[in-house]
Design a protein around this nucleic acid. Structure first.
Lengths: 219, 219
DNA sequence: CCAACCTGTCACCAGCCGGTGAATAACAAG
DNA sequence: CTTGTTATTCACCGGCTGGTGACAGGTTGG
């Protein structure tokens, strides 16, 4: 209940400023999509709804039904957008490094993913949503996210072959799970399992621990 | 309209089904608490509210205000209950094994925690809640949980000293984060980062990967 | 010019939510 | 029986939610 009710009512419009709203469907669609992403990123999925999005976009909720077919369609549009996330936020090359071993690769991937997730509130909210609910909406989002991520990893892997005798799928799942929970927990409470995660120094220590784990498995 | 409003009172109860409700405050309190835990475990924190709990407990919501001081107090009561969780669900001894090294200990702790979390829907919902919201309610729950967990680890550790030169806090945070996210994701979608987690065979592979990680760090 | 669209707004509905004041029913003591 | 206490329920409020039908106004084309 202590949600941010601070700004709900808008004051009466000043008559001198009719705030002419241009008739432009494409722009409105974009405004709605942006409002949805912003709202989800900043407020989380708890109070995410038709009314809130319409309020945030400054238009009538009816338009959301018209242009996106309701909240489901809007969420799906967000998911489609998600595909470009990896492209925008995670480097696609090896940063000039030569990745000689699978361990080199995984260490780099882990650190890149950690930073990218840390810098993207929307993605964090989506991950939190994924482990909290199992509706069709979330399943779609989740699928889009995992697909984009898998593609990125595949691209980065290149022709590097995984080591024999190790269940790389299982181990990598553990590593990525660790990163996701660590970042989520830190974003909410500033710590995770007794490890404080606030200053950049804290995060350096976390990165060191992460490297240690990756190197422990892959050498 | 007037004819419809003519009768406000419910018709006379059927004499065959008085559904006698015993007057027993302690029992009612317990029923409320049980309903709250059950509801949270089964439905998640999304639709968790005064009305839902009262409905589930089969009593009026007013009693929740009276006996627990509202939802906050009720959640706090759940948190208090949580302290006994570790005691009930995770063995407190070493199961007859001699834990010679810190690696032995951490491997055992990790596997025990994995199984315990996997078997406890309520705890899973609380963990998911923790990474989704940052209200006072959740903070209290989170604190109770982490305190109980830390106590358990401390007890299990006994006189075993952690290895030098390793940031055990950081590494252990990673390990426990991995377990939590893995179990949460699996409970919701049956997989995690491409790793399918449905059959017990799947979980054995996950356990193996987990052991590999722990042993990779702690030897 | 009028007619047909398209964009956007408004008013309204039923339903649920958290929250509260008062009535009611069971019991205990005098 | 009367009185008081305690447990329990009831009735109602304002506010927000998702959802829909009707309407206003600009834009286009015949």
């Amino acid at each position: 209940m202590p949600s941010a009710n601070a700004v709900l009512k808008k004051p009466i419009e000043m008559p001198a400023e009719p705030e002419k709203r241009v008739r432009n469907r494409a722009a409105t669609e974009q405004a709605i999509l942006n409002a949805a992403k912003r709202l989800l990123a900043e407020e989380g999925f708890q109070n995410f709804g038709i009314n809130a999005v319409a309020r945030g976009a400054g238009c009538d909720k009816q338009l959301i039904y018209r242009y996106y077919g309701g909240l489901d369609g809007l969420v799906e549009a967000i998911g489609t957008d998600l595909g470009s996330w990896v492209k925008d936020r995670i480097p696609d090359d090896t940063g000039g490094m030569f990745l000689l071993t699978y361990g080199d690769l995984m260490e780099r991937l882990a650190l890149l993913f950690l930073d990218a997730l840390r810098a993207d509130p929307l993605m964090r909210r989506i991950v939190a949503w994924e482990v909290s609910e199992n509706t069709e909406q979330v399943r779609r989002l989740s699928e889009a996210r995992s697909k984009a991520l898998a593609g990125w990893i595949e691209r980065m892997r290149g022709s590097l072959t995984p080591p024999k005798g190790i269940d790389t799928i299982g181990v990598n799942a553990m590593i990525f799970a660790a990163i996701q929970h660590l970042v989520l927990s830190a974003a909410v409470s500033g710590q995770c399992a007794g490890l404080v995660l606030k200053t950049s120094k804290d995060w350096e220590k976390a990165a060191t621990a992460l490297k240690r784990i990756v190197r422990g498995v892959y050498g």
